[in-house]
Design a protein around this nucleic acid. Sequence first.
DNA 1: CCTACCGATCGGTAGG
DNA 2: CCTACCGATCGGTAGG
Lengths: 225, 225
Amino acid sequence: MTKWSKAELPSRNELRSAKRSALIREAAMAFRSKGFYATSMEDIATALGVTKGALYRYVENKQEILFECFKASNQLGEAALELARWTPGSGLEKLRTFIKYFVEKYIEENTAGGAMVDIGALFPEQRAEIIAGRDRVDAALRTIVQEGLQDGSIVERDPKLTVFTIMGSINWIPSWYSSGGEHGPREIAEIIADIFTRGLQADGQAAARADHPAPARKRKAAPVT
Amino acid sequence: MTKWSKAELPSRNELRSAKRSALIREAAMAFRSKGFYATSMEDIATALGVTKGALYRYVENKQEILFECFKASNQLGEAALELARWTPGSGLEKLRTFIKYFVEKYIEENTAGGAMVDIGALFPEQRAEIIAGRDRVDAALRTIVQEGLQDGSIVERDPKLTVFTIMGSINWIPSWYSSGGEHGPREIAEIIADIFTRGLQADGQAAARADHPAPARKRKAAPVT
DNA sequence: CCTACCGATCGGTAGG
DNA sequence: CCTACCGATCGGTAGG
């Protein structure tokens, strides 16, 4: 217990932030399954093996926890967007990349999301920030859909509604996904991406026409790890 | 004010039930936008221009209102299913009918749905009944997808995940739909149905190829009850 | 990190 | 249908 260099030991701050992360993860899982209001601070504390008051060493209030959940969700969206933008190919292919990545990570890290419906529970400034972030992601996604419309890979003419439809499917996942199910995050991501890729795809594309070098042709099941 | 025959006047019971319906509609709208827990009985009462205590003439408790919302949602599902089953054509065509009808009505009558997430707020027996009903609808929808797989109209191989994906998009609608928007219920229903119809469709079908006499158009009569 | 407590909200009821 | 009130829950804090 002696002689360890400081660098090897978690500093006080690291410990604190590790505990804080655990608190948020635990809360996020509860929010996902029961919603924000139905989850009491006592519930979260019990799940962590401490008493309620102890939680206030790590967060100022309950809303702050929810805020972190929504931030994680938006950050995931940004990351997925970044990846999508770097994906070579048509708008449809970029969109497909977004969906695959977002869904997989969304399921894996149960921090993100939570009861998206209870966004009204945030303080006004928090809510404004979250909504602004989410709107940025939505807008960027719409732009990608537009791109697909222009390069001929996408037929669906309403980018706004299209994006809502996709995000709805994703947001609904926590309400049916169970880690013991027959599909893992990766497979689920694949299937959902398949559905929407085909769903937005220009009709002619599937039946490879000569004048269009089939830019968005569906990629079947890459080898899963 | 005299001489009206009894038949022309709403009976005491009719009045009561009309008021009860109004109560539930008002509550459902609030549940949709704010969720069950964030909506107080006081909120509902104020929206109706009465005081909280008055509501208890029409419902026994708050859960009963939520219960009615979920029942309406299930009933809408059953109705859409009935219609889908009577739709001639492939499994895909039946599924499309379901989506179109369900989405349109779901948006129009704001009774249905509500914060589907807060299903945990119901009493155990209520919850059991709602989940059983929802599962019946889900199962029937999966059967339709299976049908589509067999008649060749659908390619997507996982009926369970397919149905979840569709229902997710639909359940998410209340969180973005505003009655002032550019699309009406009917158009939205059409677009969403389009996306999923294409999304599940066998590749060859859309591009009407001469050598393929549209394999899925073969009519399997047999209207299921 | 715990015990003990407060203040506020809210579902529900009594009594009229 | 209203006024006035109760009982319980729960977020948050004081003090150690």
